[in-house]
Design a protein around this nucleic acid. Structure first.
Lengths: 335, 335
DNA sequence: CAGGTTATGCAAAACGATTTGGAGAACGCG
DNA sequence: CGCGTTCTCCAAATCGTTTTGCATAACCTG
């Protein structure tokens, strides 16, 4: 019924003919143990399948060997790819990863952070959204290590991992220029939303570098949805001198733009090229398949976990660090 | 730095002028406490923001107040929707949810299960895939509660939650019949894979019920991919007497079938209707948008968590239970 | 071989909660 | 008023580790 006789460290000790102290030391390596003793103990551990009780260990060490990830939407594949990356690194170090959903609407974030802190989660990765200074402070004040996904690098707010949005868009637009496109329009999502702004900067810089002007009538701001893409595309495609390419701030917008182009009878990419950003699954499933840019989400997760583990296993303090990861261009049919 | 002075139960006790025992009792309600004392203690708890240390509590109670979900692919939105549903219920009971990825290839599953069991996770939900009897036994033997997503209801193997695949497909095909389609083809994924087989049964039964024959030349078996859909559609659409509708075992197959139809110049749904199954995000993004069936993943997660909590908080034993959830037809443009 | 290191292992004290056997107070009843 | 019940609350034991102060044993070094 109730796990009958789960073996404990004293069982291992007596079976191996040593004290529990010694077993603990071969486990942690905090004090030297002779090679022969160590071998005997390890053999017994193996044979009995001993695993330290995490609660007992946690009580003593004040550590849970657990990493947390907080995201606004757990069903978004980006976020889960980040989680998968974290788990990959964490499991190798015998850490568990818990991913928590804290939707943007309402005060979910503080509540979830409180939960994680109360649980003594060793390291917490906070996704990119409205985390207040107070929320983040609560994490660091509790002794948990913090990594943010994006945002400025500030002392006392943990390390940062982010993707090179600006550079990714720069590469994409340069790619289009290289393929001969000259009048390149831009459809952005809502103004002022961080990743979107950075992408727009990349767009401007790429045009600049190619000696092309930024036509005001060729940039439209809408929302990060398919509907927004439709609206933006109508605006941009009806310009007095229409564009030969439309780059969109994300894939959903691009799919909307595809709708408008199809409705208008414009063949893609022959008459007009359309590109997305993020490489969501649907990007490769629509037709023509979208040329887009891949967000290195899994790699972001790996890096974040590694940063946390460095702080936890190695020196806890030290200056805040930032890791910037490159995006990857994914050329497909739509350009 | 290190959480400075986290308050413990003795702090609460002294502040409230009672013993720690009393505080514990008002927390657990295992022994009566006078109304006035209870009020005073609860007030102090509130004011000081006391939260019991989970390790200490876990050490004593042998419980972690944590639920686990094991899935083959964490980036699959189905699986994360299940996780979201679990978390919704779990959080309300102050339980945490951890979701672990154990890919199908290789012996990941036993390793992950070992991890969870070693961590004393109170309840574990195992997704639908090759879990051996031995894997599952390890869970129940450890004292953790088990819920499986699909599979037969067997004593000693925990409770089961599953979606009504057969009925879902039955409804879909009946829907087509109701709209006047008569020669309805079927493209299945690999033979012998459980959910696929059940869906095929639903297809057969629906035709039967409508008094329509199952034409052998109108059913094709391929793989659960877009490529499979293309191949299956070519086979089925070139039958001597072509179908007026093609139902596919999942959305990816349907998207592939859409490709073939488009390539052959067959307008959808005018010349031929095409339907999917699962309602992945892309189903609504392709054009024409796919008529499909929604897998109640979030609801599955909720039910699974509820089953576990029932066992954990209420009576632990009792006969194995099974919850079957209905699918929901999502009519869109492709039919 | 004396004296000083270094290796090795033990016993006991934490860690912070829950739970149990009782002690003392309050109360009802004859 | 005496006695038994019921309310309250307390002190102490317990959960399974890690860690620290010591006691040996083993090993150099001159």
């Amino acid at each position: 019924m109730h796990g009958a006789g789960r073996i404990k460290i004293v069982d291992v000790a007596s079976e191996a003919g040593v004290s529990v102290t010694t077993v603990s030391h071969v486990l942690s390596g905090r004090r030297p143990v002779s090679a022969t003793t160590r071998a005997r103990v390890e053999d017994v551990i193996q044979r009995l399948g001993y695993q330290a009780d995490p609660s007992a260990r946690g009580l003593r060490t004040q550590r849970t060997r657990t990493l947390g990830l907080v995201v606004p939407d757990i069903t978004n594949p980006f976020n889960t790819a980040i989680a998968a990356g974290m788990q990959e690194i964490a499991l190798a170090h015998e850490y568990l990863t818990v991913v928590c959903e804290a939707p943007m609407d309402g005060p979910h974030l503080p509540a979830v952070i409180r939960q994680l802190v109360a649980r003594r989660i060793d390291g917490i990765v906070v996704g990119r959204y409205g985390a207040t200074r107070q929320d983040l402070d609560r994490i660091t004040a509790s002794g948990s290590k913090l990594v943010r996904l994006g945002g400025p690098l500030a002392p006392g707010l943990g390390d940062v991992v982010r993707a090179a949005e600006t550079e990714g868009m720069y590469d994409l637009v340069s790619h289009l220029v290289g393929r001969g496109y000259r009048r390149i329009a831009y459809i952005g999502g809502a103004r002022g939303v961080e990743p979107g702004e950075e992408r727009f900067v990349g767009y401007r810089k790429a045009l600049e570098a190619a000696g092309l002007p930024v036509h005001q009538e060729l940039v439209a701001w809408t929302s990060f949805t398919r509907e927004g893409g439709r609206a933006g595309a109508t605006a941009v495609l009806t310009a007095t001198e229409p564009p030969d390419a439309v780059v969109c701030a994300n894939d959903l917008i691009a799919i909307g733009a595809l709708d408008t182009a199809r409705a208008a009878g414009l063949r893609v990419p022959d008459r007009v090229a359309i590109t997305g950003y993020d490489d969501i699954e649907a990007a490769s499933l629509v037709s023509p398949a979208l040329t887009t840019v891949l967000n290195p989400a899994r790699e972001i997760g790996r890096s974040a976990a590694q940063l946390l583990l460095d702080r936890l296993e190695g020196e806890g303090s030290g200056p805040a660090r930032e890791i910037v990861l490159a995006h990857r261009l994914v050329p497909r049919e739509s350009a």
